[in-house]
Simulated assay, not measured.
Amino acid sequence: MSILVIGSTGTIGSLVVEGLARHGASVTAMVRQAGKASLPDGVNSVVGDLNNVATLRQAMAGVRTLFLLNALAADELTQSLQALNVAREAGIERIVYLSVIHADLYPNVPHFASKHTVERMIEKLKMPATILRPAYFMQNDISIQQVIEGYGVFPMPIGPKGVAMVDARDIADIAVAELLRRDRAAEPLPSVTLDIAGRDVLTGESATAVWSKALGRPIAYCGNDVSAFEAQLMQNGVPAWMAYDLRLMMDGIQQVGQIPAAGTVEQLEQILGRPMRTYAAFVAERVQQTNKH
C-alpha cells in the first residue's frame, strides 16, 4: 500500500513527494512519461493521465492514500471528477485534495468554480478527505521577478483588498502532514477543510513596497487594469483561455481578496510546529539568489 501523488512534478507536488520521502513513506508519483521526472531515491513512478481513465485505474490499484493536485487546465473539472470517481472505485478512503481559498466566492472564475464543484462532490459523497484551500502562492511572483528588477514595475494587479500570500513550501509541508496523518490512521478520518494563508495580508501597493525595500530602489505598482494584464499574458504566449481565466481571477482578487478567517494562521502553525514563512523573507531570498548568479 502506498501514497499516490497526482500532480507530482509541479511546484507543490514535487515538494510533497520530497517531504513524504523524507518521512519514510511509501510514495508513488504519477507521471505522464516514464523516465522524464527526477524523483527522490525510493520513490516509485507510475505513468498516468488525468484524461485517461484506464491509466488512472492502473495507477490507483493498491493505493491506500491519495494526493490530488490538478494543474490549471481547460478540462480541469472533468479530470478531477474522473480521478476521484476512480479513487472511489479503488476503495481509497484517505484523500488530500488541493483546492483554492474562497473557491465558493469566485463563481465566474473557471478553475475556482471547478475546484468548488470537486469540494461539493467530496462533501456530498462523504469521501474522507482533507481539502486544502491555499491563497495566492508567493512562488507565482518568480515569473515576474525579471520584470520587477528589469523595468522597476510590479506587474501583478492584485489590487487593494488584500491577499494573504502563502509560500509553496508551507503548503507542501501541511499537505505532507495531512497525508501522513490520514495514511497512518487505523480507520478513515473525518473530512476537514483547511484554508492555507500567510500572516501578512498584502495589497498591490504593499507587495510592491516589499520589493522596493529588498532591492533598495523604488519599484512602481502597475495598477489594477486586468485587461492589460490579460493582454500581456497572451503576448507572452499564454493560451487565450488561460489568460482569460487568470484575468477573471485577478478581478475577483481585487473585489473579494484572499483573507483567511481569524485563527487560521495559528492553526496552520500548530500543524507545522513553526511560523509560516513571510513574503518579505521570500522576496529577500529571491533577490539574494539572483545576486549570486
Rank of each mutant, 00 (worst) to 15 (best):
Q139L: 01
C222Q: 15
A214S: 01
L189S: 00
L202H: 05
P190R: 09
V153Q: 10
A135M: 05
V210H: 00
G237L: 05
A185Q: 11
A172Y: 02
P157Y: 03
V192A: 12
L194S: 02
G223E: 01
R217M: 11
N236M: 14
R181F: 06
L233N: 10
L202R: 00
M242P: 10
S212P: 05
D195S: 15
D225F: 03
V238W: 06
Y221Q: 08
A168M: 05
G162K: 00
F137T: 04
I196S: 06
Q146G: 06
L202C: 02
P160L: 09
Q146L: 07
E178N: 08
V147A: 13
G216E: 03
A135C: 12
A177K: 09
A185R: 11
S143L: 13
V166R: 00
D170H: 06
S143A: 14
S143E: 11
P155T: 02
T193W: 07
A240T: 07
A214I: 05
P155G: 00
V210D: 00
A231Y: 02
A231T: 15
G162T: 03
G204A: 03
L215V: 02
D225A: 11
R184C: 13
P155W: 07
G223C: 08
F137G: 05
I148C: 03
A185V: 09
Y136Q: 12
D173R: 10
Y151F: 15
Q145S: 14
A172I: 09
D141Y: 09
V201L: 05
E149V: 04
F229Y: 15
R133Q: 14
A209P: 01
G150V: 01
A207G: 01
D141A: 07
D141L: 10
R169P: 08
E230Q: 13
G237P: 04
Q235T: 15
D170P: 07
D167Y: 05
N236Y: 13
G223L: 03
E178A: 03
R169C: 04
I144Y: 15
P134T: 04
L189C: 03
D195F: 12
T208V: 06
W241E: 10
A185N: 07
F154Q: 03
E178Q: 12
C222F: 14
R184W: 13
I174W: 02
A135T: 12
R199F: 05
T193Q: 10
M138Q: 06
M138C: 08
Y136I: 14
M242E: 11
I171C: 04
I148F: 00
R182E: 02
P239F: 03
R181Y: 08
V210Y: 01
N236L: 14
A207Y: 00
I171F: 02
